[in-house]
Design a protein around this nucleic acid. Structure first.
Lengths: 228, 228
DNA sequence: TAGATTGTTAATCGATTAACAATC
DNA sequence: TAGATTGTTAATCGATTAACAATC
């Protein structure tokens, strides 16, 4: 339908989630002066099978060479491109609380192909200030940015209670993606915008499960030893 | 081996990662005054099949009642308990930069069954201060806490370069889990400690992939319209 | 060339979904 | 009781792993 050339089968989410890990590993190898690597060695270093690695890459093209392996820099570039790192997505940040501020000050959006252009909040004490060179505007000025520029992504770091209202407003202005730090399940359809969640609490709770398991099994082992 | 009663098969990671979402939804239902729900209705609200929901719960016990469904409060309690929310895990935080500070100030550890007891850093300007009631100690005092208390979890929010060194030290002191905010793959075996990663960049890059896909398909659709 | 390693097809494994007897 | 819904077994689907011809 879309085009005779674009026969690309949908790539599974599992594969997509591994791409950033490959990128990280390849950067590490590059920094260590390694310039070629086989799927076997890459697998060993990352705890994956060589089969899986070759399968993953083959979703996007043929990046290796038989008998040789993969060129580290070349492969790194391919993966970066697949992830959209050369697209210079424009980003705004909504909600300059602690997390919002930490993201502005610390997170290197540029490194990943994103470009933070402005921040928004309602609190008079932050509106009008600059944080690491990013101007904080009053939220009422939000609509104006869409007159002059396209905004690809919004970092959402507002209080829980207004999360959905803010998300809705952003999507209606045409924002295509929301990086959601609010720990609220946003009521946005996939056709409207891509929502990517950073759910701190989900992560901590899963950790709590595995921690419980570990402590229980250690306690059981200790009890068994004591009995002997 | 471990015991004739403990025949619990290993629960898949996928299931574990859904538990916090169930918890969140159940809290929401509770707040809305709902006191019973069927797997069918829960599935509809969460975008899962009723089969999957029943399968998930059945990994841990029988929490429902035929012909009735699940008691919201009861089920919530079961899941909370599975996730270790009643265990009052003790937590220290290492690295009081922006993210560390944001976690101390904003993240409600108590709500999830964790108890933050102290923070550590090396920078003289933060050592000795209190942040939201949490004292920041010099890192050299770290060993002392293990003399008097057990520490279950460490939040690791130090600079990338010292991430592995710090993690190693924590594990050697007996910390059982590391909540890793450093965006570095830690070199800690699962038998040593549970490592749970918050990789902001991995999340953003995956978002970048889906965003690229969305923009491309919208552009293709627009081009097609223009041609017609 | 011989050895190594890819890309891909086939086999296996695990997770999700469907079906249904049990039972509230 | 009749209707609803569970817990669980079986069927399906998808993802990972293994195998191997192609080829650098």
């Amino acid at each position: 339908m879309v085009g005779y050339l674009v026969k690309q089968a949908k790539v599974s989410n599992n594969v997509i989630r591994r791409l950033p890990r490959y990128l990280r590993k390849l950067d590490e190898l590059k920094a260590a002066g390694v310039d070629r690597i086989s799927s076997g060695e890459l697998g060993r270093q990352m705890g994956l099978t060589s089969s899986q690695i070759r399968q993953d890459f083959s979703c996007f093209g043929e990046f290796g060479q038989q008998g040789y392996g993969y060129n580290v820099t070349g492969l790194r570039g391919e993966i970066a491109s697949i992830l959209g790192m050369n697209r210079d997505f424009s980003v705004i940040l909504v909600g300059v609380g602690n997390i919002g501020r930490a993201m502005i000050e610390n997170f290197c959006f540029e490194q990943y192909g994103f470009h933070l252009v402005a921040a928004y909040d309602v609190r008079p004490e932050v509106v009008g200030t600059d944080i690491s060179g990013i101007r904080v505007h009053d939220i009422s000025e939000l609509p104006r940015i869409f007159d002059t520029s396209r905004v690809d992504l919004a970092v959402l770091s507002v209080p829980k209670l207004i999360a959905n209202k803010a998300a809705r407003e952003l999507v209606e202005h045409g924002v295509k993606g929301i990086w959601n730090f609010t720990n609220v399940e946003l009521d946005i359809a996939e056709s409207e915008a891509i929502v990517e969640n950073i759910h701190f609490s989900d992560s901590l709770l899963a950790l709590g499960y595995y921690l419980s398991e570990k402590l229980d099994s250690e306690a059981a082992a200790a009890a068994k030893n004591a009995r002997q």
